[in-house]
Design a protein around this nucleic acid. Structure first.
Lengths: 128, 128
DNA sequence: GGTATTTAGTTACTTTTGGATACTCAAAGG
DNA sequence: CCTTTGAGTATCCAAAAGTAACTAAATACC
């Protein structure tokens, strides 16, 4: 029995799923945090270098998606070589407190989590 | 020039990356929210049915990972048919306020984001 | 006593996502 | 001319996520 498109879309209207799915990618939260820390607008390569290990493709995709969602503004200066600056919109800034809270939680509990992971891995060894 | 494993691990020690990467999957946050709402422990299929469109495999993987991170406890009763119950640990509960904040933000700004997406898609049409 | 049911999880397979690399455009510098 | 520069595309490939079908083992039903 084949599923119809509607079946997949059943949950597409759920705001929580819909919006949180966007942070389900590897880079969006990181880029928002970064743009949030930086008070002035950042250029493409500046973001890329600060993150360090993101490919051009993924940074482009991530910034485009954030732009589409209205989280980020893209200012393009028609110069040669091209200059493009990004900064958070008010919407993007309004998200900042929440993901900063999350980031602080992450720092605070990092040790606990790391230990838990090691313990779990060790237990797995015993069983196998 | 080939990259060594160490190069990839440069950022592996960053708590924010390391922990936030875990929410980079589609289901973890959703499962934590769900277990957080539910006051009593939940069974595997109860979680699966509430979410609705998660496969057995992905629920297994998600719960295992959350267990490894110490966010969830897994209580296994050696019965036939098997019974397994899941609930949040204190660590998992401590994360709840932050992702609840995120979820509320999502609900509040869903409309704005949806409109922004449509506008962006329309603009793209014009250019192409 | 054969068969369907129930539950948590695994295996084998397919699809989607992410990443490495090379290429583009258009002007300025040597 | 030929290279450099910034912000990307285009293409191809590997890795991750996701799906469908399967398993075990006791019980309920017929």
């Amino acid at each position: 029995m084949k599923k119809k498109l509607e079946d997949y879309d059943l949950h597409a209207s759920c705001p929580i799923r819909n919006v949180l799915d966007r942070f389900g990618d590897k880079w969006s939260i990181l880029v928002i945090l970064l743009l949030g820390e930086h008070k002035t607008a950042m250029r493409f390569n500046e973001v890329a270098q600060t993150i360090g290990d993101i490919s051009q493709k993924m940074l482009t995709v991530t910034l485009r998606t954030l732009e589409a969602d209205g989280m980020v503004v893209r200012k393009h200066y028609p110069e040669i070589p091209p200059r493009v600056e990004y900064e958070l919109t008010d919407l993007g800034k309004s998200l900042l407190p929440y993901i900063n809270g999350l980031a602080q939680w992450a720092v605070k509990n990092y040790d606990t989590i790391t230990k838990s992971r090691k313990k779990f891995a060790a237990r797995k060894q015993l069983v196998s």
